[in-house]
Design a protein around this nucleic acid. Structure first.
Lengths: 216, 216
DNA sequence: ACTATGAAAAGTGTTACATAAATCAAATGA
DNA sequence: TCATTTGATTTATGTAACACTTTTCATAGT
């Protein structure tokens, strides 16, 4: 005769571990990572899974209607932070065009203003990094191959802004365009087509380009 | 009777794919990554897979991710402006906390080296000044109305350099061209003609343009 | 009512596996 | 002879599978 089977457990609704209860709070997937970056990525993952960390960027994180999920919140991780060195100050004379119509010398009274390039170009040094452009997809607005971009990740990506976007694992610089037709990443070069950002697209906005520097 | 077995191949020394011939140039391991960070990490790995480069400013555009859907032909690649500590990170196979500090993080503690834009852009502080462009005569090389130019008076104006020239009392930015036909000030805009600098012209070269800055 | 027990559902790190790509040497062909 | 083809060999790479672990809930037992 059959002895009593333990009736504990059994199929029941709502049992089991809850989704999102892991240390990342979201689903995961496996990726192959080169050894030299394993430690760095682990550190980053630990950083962002640390809830009480005083993330400088909290609160200034862009919210975009890009079909992005809450992954937006974790902007904290990437980009090389190269804040301006606050020790060294170089003040430069700035001549307005009308003034230099004459022949002033840098030492004379025609100097209207002196400024520090760091102050002029970097407004939020903790959230600013630089990168170098390769490619010509933005040449119409003067961003050329080899130019250095100053990127501020604390600025909200708005319609019309030049943004750095990681789309399906590739970094691009494009103009963000939010139309009734959807959200687009628009090159400034007629040889390249605009890219429609679909709902299911895997996209992360890394920051807003505030300046482009060409060196001759 | 046994027919002839193909004798091609067979065990041999040194055959096969070489170690380090993958896109990362080093061994890899699998890691579990939260979905929200997959794109960012992919982008970062693509950026950093410029193996042989020790050039601080260089960066190569990633090739194809194998098996990955990389439909996006339209791209502008980037090179990072790599700070010194990142070079160390690449060259030294250490996993100390110091090295991980090269990994981008919003926390100030993780920034080892700060970049000074003044140092990057200005080489001779005493002889350098800024001015703001008016007009579009140099738009072909990305110098646009409103851009800020960094001008070094200590550099010698040579053929091909972008210079600030005062010609007959008027200040212009042009490319200096010294040909057998004479000395020319050449606009980078087809709507404007090159200007021949005659013997009797009243011309002073104010300096050589080293950088142009566009702000968005 | 309170605790203990065990099944269920999800998380996590690692291994395994199926191709893909790269490389070399023998075989083949010009 | 010398270049090309062929196929084995080796490493690379993305994903599936696995062996746990952890969390959660329903029921049993006290």
């Amino acid at each position: 005769m059959s002895h009593e089977i333990d009736k504990r457990g059994g199929l029941r609704q709502g049992s089991g571990r809850k989704k999102g209860s892991g240390k990342f709070g979201e689903p995961t997937r496996v990726m192959r990572i080169p050894h030299s970056k394993v430690t760095a990525i682990q550190a980053w993952l630990n950083l962002s899974s640390n809830k009480n960390s005083t993330d400088v960027l909290d609160g200034t994180v862009p919210k975009v209607g890009l079909g992005l999920d809450k992954s937006n919140k974790d902007f904290s991780g990437f980009g090389w932070y190269l804040p301006a060195n606050d020790v060294s100050f170089i003040e430069l004379p700035l001549y307005s065009h009308k003034v230099v119509a004459g022949f002033p010398s840098p030492a004379d009274d025609y100097v209207e203003e002196r400024l520090d390039l760091n102050e002029k170009l970097i407004h939020n040094k903790e959230a600013t990094f630089l990168l170098v452009v390769q490619g010509d997809s933005m040449q119409n607005i003067g961003i050329k191959d080899g130019d250095t971009l100053i990127v501020d990740r604390s600025l909200e990506p708005r319609d019309g802004k030049i943004v750095i976007a990681a789309l399906d694992g590739e970094l691009t610089v494009k103009r963000l365009s939010m139309k009734s037709t959807g959200t687009w990443l628009v090159p400034e070069n007629d040889d390249y087509p605009p890219i429609l950002v679909r709902e299911e697209s895997d996209i992360v906005i890394w920051g807003v380009v505030t300046s482009a520097i060409s060196q001759f």
